[in-house]
């Protein structure tokens, strides 16, 4: 049976159909979940897709973190369920306090939209368990506020605990320590600025994102995820 992946749709999300399609292309069962819903019952994994949730007003993710679905996302994550935030989804997870740090305006103020090379820095995460440590993946970025920042103590802590999951080979946005993606301490919540769903077929220019989506489905079938309350 396919793993059921809930893809949360906020007003202003714009990558949800791409994620559903890409999850399907690696054998998962992607389903849209409206942000006003309050339950994630029956899902094995959750993705917060890219876009401009609630118009990115105030700050990206600042309003989305109060969407009704976010309590369920928090419970799902606390129970060990895999939760991935892509781009705007990453911003929402940091605002919600589910991931460390914050994403601010790109150095140079440019909105960037092009493929980048990412290095896999940890394979102990819901998004990289099937990847190879040190692998270089070619995946597009598409953001104006992807400049990862945090205080020095947090940086030391996430580096020491192996929570840096991806680094840019060439830093496109000024992110601290070239960080492109981070996980929580348990590794089941992951956020990244690049879009693996846009690198899920050779036809799209790269299929390097598939291993990440396969990892997500793998994480969805771990005993930890299955033991969570329905």
């Amino acid at each position: 049976m396919s793993e059921r992946v809930g893809v949360v749709v906020f007003p202003g999300s714009n990558c949800e159909f791409d994620v559903v399609e890409a999850v399907g292309s690696v054998g998962g069962d992607g389903n849209l979940v409206w942000h006003g819903d309050t339950s994630l019952a029956g899902f094995d994994a959750v993705v917060l897709p890219g876009g401009f949730a609630h118009g990115d007003y105030l700050r990206p993710g600042a309003i989305a973190r109060f969407s009704p679905i976010m309590d369920a996302v928090r419970d799902f994550a606390a129970a060990g369920g895999p939760v991935v935030g892509i781009c705007n989804g990453f911003q929402i997870l940091t605002e919600a306090g589910l991931l460390p740090g914050a994403l601010q305006k790109n150095a140079g103020n440019k909105f960037i939209c092009h493929p980048v090379q990412l290095r896999v820095e940890s394979i102990n995460s819901a998004l990289t368990n099937a990847a190879e440590l040190g692998a270089i993946l070619r995946i597009p970025v598409n953001h104006g506020e992807g400049n990862f920042t945090c205080d020095a103590a947090t940086l030391r802590e996430i580096e020491a605990k192996g929570q840096v999951v991806f680094r840019y080979v060439e830093n496109p946005n000024g992110s601290m320590s070239d960080i492109a993606g981070v996980a929580n301490e348990a590794g089941n919540v992951v956020g990244l600025m690049p879009h693996p769903e846009r690198a899920s077929e050779e036809l799209l220019g790269s299929a390097d994102g598939r291993v990440l989506l396969e990892s997500l489905l793998g994480a969805a079938t771990t005993p930890l995820a299955r033991s969570r309350p329905a």
Partner: peptide, 13 residues
């Protein structure tokens, strides 16, 4: 305002 020590790309521009 951005905390002290946090880079400010808009300010720099």
């Amino acid at each position: 305002r951005l905390r002290e020590g946090i880079a400010d790309p808009q300010g720099q521009t």
